[in-house]
Nucleic acid binder design. Sequence first.
DNA 1: TTTGAATATGAATATTGTTCATATTTTCTC
DNA 2: GAGAAAATATGAACAATATTCATATTCAAA
Lengths: 202, 202
Amino acid sequence: MSKKLLEFKGINIPKTKLGQTKMEKLLASSEELFAKNGFYATSISDICKHAGTAVGTFYIYFETKTDVYKYLMETYKREIKDRLAENIKDCKTRYDKEREGIKCFIKYAVSEPNVYNIIWGSLSIDRQLFVDYYTSFASSYSRALREDDDVFLSDTDSIAYMLMGISNFLGLKAMFTSMTDEQVDEMVDTTVMPALKCGILK
Amino acid sequence: MSKKLLEFKGINIPKTKLGQTKMEKLLASSEELFAKNGFYATSISDICKHAGTAVGTFYIYFETKTDVYKYLMETYKREIKDRLAENIKDCKTRYDKEREGIKCFIKYAVSEPNVYNIIWGSLSIDRQLFVDYYTSFASSYSRALREDDDVFLSDTDSIAYMLMGISNFLGLKAMFTSMTDEQVDEMVDTTVMPALKCGILK
DNA sequence: TTTGAATATGAATATTGTTCATATTTTCTC
DNA sequence: GAGAAAATATGAACAATATTCATATTCAAA
């Protein structure tokens, strides 16, 4: 259950077992309370009470409250990347990759509705974080599209943003209505993929 | 310049000239400071200092800080609706409506980059506000699609979310790179519309 | 076992959103 | 225009917050 702790600015990695335990508890509590009550309605003392630590302990591992947020965002980012890679690894055509990728993304959105809070909310907390997230995602996506030979249209950068938009907003719809995996599959197979292959409008 | 003030819960409409002036100054300052520093980095006393009022004055017109936020969100919502309606009013086909609607939305996103902060940020501030915004937008969109006869595919609700996703994410791209109106037109004409008519993938 | 480094603690601080009693201005009535 | 009532303005005061820090405890390596 205890994954490798990520390192970056604003985060101080513990050097002992005790420290690791405390930091993991703080992270788990932060994630749970942010999901339940939101970032701003969750106070540091709430997090610490829930994790069973003193307030000062929090500040040993995180320089500011925003830094836990960044940490969780990075976690979700990696989780999404890993899941997508895993789910499309056996697909030969771009068509198959998109079908599996979109299904995977939407199902993830339903199972972890907090990703939108974290990723879209970053726009209000640290704009650069948000810009970096999507420009880097779009740039990988665009490169991948260019390498496959079954993509119409040359402006793969715009296509990448369109496809990201489709996934993200269908994820929203699925989240709002708590769609099941079967409903997601059905929607993607009967509506989304035909739209990507044949268009939407006459 | 001074538009009609909107009425709803959490907002107290002033009844004198003096009150209107003060409220308008508070709104303008809120919008400016939220855009520059974000909702949470802007304090009530910042807003009041900038507007030239005392802190107590703020609370005559807005019950909480979140209520100014709601007010601004409602403003943007109406602005977007009005602009879209105005821009597609002469279009006969759904194809033409989409072309003009998408162009209009993207240009608006570039000119008012704060809309994303306000609308997407609402997810972290008042989840219901966010859900209501998109479900109501999607439901009107879906109804409009059903009434036109040049839309492939029967699940107009999913199509509505896809189209909203496309507009919103292309708006993001345009905002990130500060695209000009001409660049937006070019992108929509040569990439987006062909994609909507003929699809993206082989 | 000893020692220095790592960690834990919670009271103290500065800043925040919000309230309220008091003072001023506007509007209405005569 | 005078006076009264309603609307508005004010900023000090309050509770809650994020963050700091001096002190106490625990860990790991020799």
